[in-house]
Design a protein around this nucleic acid. Structure first.
Lengths: 214, 214
DNA sequence: ACCACATCGCAACTCGAAGTTGCGATAGCC
DNA sequence: GGCTATCGCAACTTCGAGTTGCGATGTGGT
């Protein structure tokens, strides 16, 4: 309940807030990367940030809101889209930078929250959709250039390319559970390239043909 | 509320010994499929099984052991390996049965536990490795037949084929978050077939070549 | 059928973490 | 240097994990 007379949302007197705000969010990301969402304790986060538990609860409604807010800052991290001159090189670079981001502390924290039981939080699910929507959109020029060069068939879907590229990497990280290194990235790039060249990654509207073609 | 007996409604005692054992495990799987690992309460499981909380703790050391035991029974579920006569048909059938299992209550429960914060439990991680090791092993004849038919290059790695096939399906389920249906299965089969034909899924020992080959 | 024993229900407990409240201390701004 | 919003602090409630002792009941052996 905000009162009308006192300016509740004025931006100037955020007080000594911003420093504490940033410290708590950084501590949240660190705790997330280390122990995951289930092990994340508000008391530990506060202690790590050099702040009292009550202060955290004054800024954030609950533990979920804290995690959502902490992730929102790092979710906007831009993975640069390469332009090496060939679609093979571009795919490999995209895969490598994705792997690099996933093994970084920030990436590990985001991944931990996006996969753990926090996914049931609608804000987390929404953030997840936003991430991939953004990547799909940013991958469009890469695919468009490859089509213009004649490397990929006309009608290749950028979303399908990004999905095919990211799938083996996330599969390794989340499901099969092996080490995540450049070998995985290059394998993902090869699979994606082979599929795209075969015309399998075309626009999803008309994917009705049989699997085995001539 | 609807028909005579709702699955959650268990006002009467369920019996002793093995009957109670089975009821608790079934209730655990059901709770897992509905609310995930974080929301799984021993008290709710006991209530659903028509059993007291203490009884559960007498058989299982803690909540983690309960989940591990409940999953162990359903983890051994065999996904039948097809033999349609062509690798394209086999891949499509494997993908479809994987999707079918993942959307079933049992599959949802296993998936929920295998991805949630329960992964930090060593027993869960071990069970996960066992599942995929089993699938890799069972997929060997399918790939061997395809190689014998001349459909796939010599040296194609069954593990890589299964990974490539399962990756887009799990990616859809866990990361990109879209609907999981036969369209996804067929797309996964097409990608895997294209990659395998291109010789990208060969034995992992010597994957050092450049991405774009002739 | 009857008794013995293992098994289960039950209530009451400890412990840790989420989230809340009131008050006193302090830092930032004018 | 004073005013006020912000923060620290302690004490509190609530909830679920996990434990304990005892009483009740079902099951097998004879």
């Amino acid at each position: 309940m905000e009162l009308g007379s006192t300016p509740a949302d004025r931006p100037r007197p955020v007080g000594r807030g911003p420093k504490m705000h940033a410290a708590v969010l950084a501590a949240t990301v660190a705790e997330l990367a280390e122990g995951g969402y289930a092990a994340l304790t508000v008391e530990r986060v506060a202690q790590r940030a050099g702040v009292h538990k009550t202060t955290v609860y004054r800024r954030w409604k609950d533990r979920a809101a804290l995690v959502v807010d902490a992730l929102a800052e790092h979710i906007a991290t831009d993975i640069p889209m390469p332009d090496t001159g060939s679609i093979g090189g571009d795919l490999r670079e995209m895969a490598r930078s994705l792997v690099g981001w996933l093994v970084s502390p920030t990436g590990r924290a985001v991944e931990a929250a996006l996969i753990s039981d926090a996914v049931r939080l609608p804000e987390i699910a929404e953030a997840r959709a936003r991430i991939f929507g953004d990547r799909f959109r940013r991958a469009e020029p890469v695919v468009a250039r490859a089509v213009a060069r004649g490397e990929l068939p006309v009608g290749t879907d950028p979303s399908a390319v990004v999905s095919a590229l990211a799938a083996p990497i996330h599969f390794r990280l989340l499901v099969s559970g092996g080490p995540l290194d450049d070998t995985v990235a290059e394998q993902a790039a090869r699979i994606t390239l082979a599929a795209a060249r075969a015309g399998v990654l075309d626009t999803p509207a008309r994917v009705a043909g049989p699997v085995d073609k001539g």
